[in-house]
């Protein structure tokens, strides 16, 4: 027996003054913080753009407003190897970080039980030690006479006979330093997966590996995407690892920006470099996300 009761209309929604007052409070709350970000994040980017178009005055370190697009040409023609190295090094480092981080994130999400919280603290703990010092510590670990280098040398695995001051050291440092940025998003994605799904896959005749490939991995993809971006972006702009662990031939675009800004005082070219980096990253990210969205990535 379905019910009856025809619904009578006639009621109207009133948007009162309350809504407007609430919006005003919101703007008041936003104002100081947003103004700060506007003033010290957006305006500097604009300023960076104008600086990248300035032209020299003849006096070193002093420039005048202009439309010197040639700065961009100089930046690219002089520093394209650094750009290429940046993206190759940080790309390899990101993949390495993913391979290293995934088992740990998986372990914490599915196997750690009551130790979960403690393990998460331990994952973040490296943040509490100085970035520079823990990078520098790799000089000790990878030292020429050290255990790792001599073992690998004994096996004739190192083409240059050493690790320190080679791209391998730079990549090692990069992949190590941004590991927490990879582990945490991976963990967040894995933790949301119902462990019963894995059991279900096993129940439905999937081998552990197939179960992983068909169930866990696809479901963890959002974490993989977030983690790789959070690792790749800071790594591609980094110059600490390249400076402390690499040789002068291993310099990245971060080094180029730093040197032009702080030593050569060639502000326009340095700004152009920053701007190109700023532009390439979103482009790469866009392509990557598009691919990650399809099955090409899997």
């Amino acid at each position: 027996m379905p019910a009856l009761a025809p619904v009578a209309g006639g009621a109207k929604v009133s948007v009162g003054a309350g809504v407007q007052r609430r919006a005003r409070t919101a703007y008041l709350l936003l104002l100081p913080g947003i103004a700060w970000l506007g003033l010290f994040f957006v305006v500097p980017l604009v300023s960076l753009f104008f600086t990248s178009l300035q032209s020299p005055t003849g006096t070193p370190g002093v420039y005048q407003p202009g439309f010197e697009a040639a700065n961009y040409l100089t930046a690219i023609s002089d520093y394209w190897p650094q750009f290429v190295k940046s993206f190759i090094y940080s790309g390899i480092a990101t993949v390495l970080a993913l391979v290293i981080a995934y088992p740990l994130a998986y372990f914490i999400a599915f196997k750690a039980g009551k130790w979960r919280a403690l393990l998460l603290v331990l994952v973040v703990a490296p943040f509490f030690a100085s970035f520079l010092l823990r990078t520098y510590a790799w000089r000790t670990i990878l030292a020429d006479e050290g255990f790792i280098t001599s073992t690998l040398n004994a096996l004739h695995l190192l083409p240059e006979g050493r690790i320190l001051n080679t791209p391998i050291a730079v990549i090692t440092g990069l992949s190590y330093n941004f590991l927490p940025f990879m582990i945490l998003p991976l963990y967040a994605a894995l933790e949301r997966i119902d462990p019963r799904l894995i059991e279900a896959a096993g129940d439905l005749y999937a081998s552990p590996f197939t179960g992983f490939r068909k169930v866990v991995w696809p479901l963890s993809l959002p974490g993989v995407v977030a983690g790789t971006l959070l690792t790749f972006i800071p790594a591609s702009g980094d110059y600490i690892n390249a400076t402390l662990l690499g040789s002068p031939q291993d310099r990245m675009v971060g080094n180029a920006i730093q040197i032009n800004f702080l030593q050569f005082r060639d502000y326009p070219v340095a700004s152009a470099l920053s701007f190109i980096l700023m532009a390439i990253i979103p482009a790469l990210v866009f392509v990557y996300i598009r691919r990650a969205g399809t099955e090409d990535l899997v």
Binding site: V7, A8, G9, G10, A11, K12, V13
Partner: peptide, 13 residues
């Protein structure tokens, strides 16, 4: 007493 949310009348007279 009437309460409407947009077109939907939750409480009707």
């Amino acid at each position: 007493l009437v309460k409407s949310f947009g077109d939907f009348t939750a409480v009707d007279e």
